[in-house]
Design a protein around this nucleic acid. Structure first.
Lengths: 180, 180, 180, 180
DNA sequence: TATGAATGAGACTTCATTCAT
DNA sequence: CATGAATGAAGTCTCATTCAT
């Protein structure tokens, strides 16, 4: 379906060139549709971006919720989040909201907030279960986690860190750091 | 001096609205100069951004080098870096390179690389001195640190975390996480 | 087709006001299109000028080549060139390259060179056939001819010489002047 | 005196780069004065150009009038005009009016008209004296002469015709062409 | 639905001109 | 008289968006 083709093309093109260097016609070309067609499915270019980010986060959320039904321990859950975040394709759109936070407004905030909230819950439960230290703000820890993952992800592109098991190292440091 | 006024205005405006939503005339207005005046001091809009980032990183580097002459322990040094990074004004420009990494090219890379290298050295020395674990890539840890700081910084604006001693918490977690 | 409308409008406007006093929006208005439309057909304003000049010279060349198949005598050929050059519409674009020679670079040179070369051949053949004097540089004579025609053309606009058979007089003088 | 320095600088710079590619500050730099100084002597950039052209033509006219007091024959006079026109420095400003005719308006016209008138008189007198043919418009002949000279002059720069005695050839052709 | 030529607002930049020193 | 930093109008060009087909 074209709706999806456009979204995927947008993610690809924007990931390569950045949002503001990605003219609508470039997205259209990549999607194999005419420029005007995009406006049959989306109200504006911003809307395409918004939808792409929405899609990525929603998918991410769903993936987590599903996994958490069988993965119950805080440690396992954090590990899973890190692993999933590191998966390049899924997270490219998540990463995109960086470039775009200043003007995408509450939509962008909302998704990030949801990601953060998800992590906070894991942390809080870990704290209740006595697995994690209690002397730390769960909010700070959650941003902490998101920040590391996102930076490693984007640096990987430039710095050639692709080989390393980054998610593993991150979780390892984090656990020691916040473990009780 | 106008040069400085323009640079400061640019950092302010871009921090608020993002580089690509910051027309030159907005920067000019904020700086209290005419549009054309900017081009007496900078060759192009890109050049303003580049100069702002250069300035911020250079200042940051100098501050570190100075401080490290009396602060010798890896722990103290990391703490100092975190503290300095968290200082809003100084780091806003550092943060800006995020939005802009894809097209600012090597200039942007170089600065980040220098920051990373600085942290890596601290880590490596800590590993040699037996203060830090040896089973981790110092490069990953350095990006780790940068990522956390930058995310916390940018989230602070939105999430109202301003009160918390974020730098302190970061360093605390990091030390436990990578301590030997 | 818009491509042609724009080219014609450009020639008209530039002929009236000069290239550098012809903002793109004036050309667009004359062509009855929006400013941006011009950039669908031409990469830049310079490109419009270049294309206009190209078109005029090409048309001129083709016209000559065609005519020369039946017009074999040097005298007839020169007469034909003069006549064609004098035709206002066709030659306006040829005239334009004057204003613009310094910065249109080799494209402009090339066309003029071709015109000159065409005349030189006629002259040289005339010299071989003994119709023209041999003690003159054919290159000088060719520029000679081009210069006269172009000046008469541009003066005609201002000086109201429109009525006179200028081409005829020119060729007459030229023949007596260079005739053997 | 600065007035003169500015005028000379203007002619030099404009001859090299064309009027519209000659920013005022380039003329100022060449003249060794500040930008603003130019406006103490001239009302506008156009005025500088106008004055430069005025100066060149006036000088040219004076030179002719002077010479014509001893040079009485039509042939000698035409020869002298051609020779003087060909002198590079003197004629550069004359040549400049080409680029600029469309918008310099009557001032430019007037000078050219004067040049033309001067030649026409020579021609007319030649016709009366029976030296020149009577079946030609003296106006056409005058433009004829101006056009050739100007083209040869400007082509010389590009085509490397510098060596040839162009003025001589021109006059030679012209005489045969219009001689009785 | 789909197209893509056309639009025009708005961005960046240049440069003639002014004016406080 | 002289300076040159500053101004801002105007120019070129891009690109999100529309609409006739």
């Amino acid at each position: 379906m074209k709706y999806r083709r456009i979204l995927d093309a947008a993610v690809e093109v924007i990931a390569e060139r950045g949002y503001f260097h990605s003219p609508v016609n470039a997205i259209a070309r990549r999607a194999g549709v005419a420029d005007g067609t995009i406006y049959l499915y989306f109200k504006s270019k911003d809307e395409v971006l918004r939808a792409a980010i929405d899609m990525a986060f929603d998918q991410f959320s769903r993936q987590m919720e599903e996994a958490f039904e069988t993965l119950r321990g805080p440690r396992e859950q954090l590990e899973y989040i890190a692993q999933a975040h590191m998966d390049r394709h899924a997270s490219m759109a998540i990463h995109m909201q960086r470039e775009v936070r200043p003007f995408l407004g509450e939509s962008s905030q909302r998704h990030l907030a949801k990601y953060i909230e998800m992590v906070r819950e894991v942390i809080r439960r870990g704290q209740q279960e006595g697995v994690f230290r209690r002397d730390m703000s769960d909010e700070v820890v959650a941003h902490f986690m998101f920040g590391v993952m996102d930076e490693l992800l984007s640096s990987a592109v430039f710095a050639g860190l692709e080989g390393e098991d980054m998610a593993g190292q991150v979780v390892d440091v984090l656990f020691r750091g916040i473990g009780a």
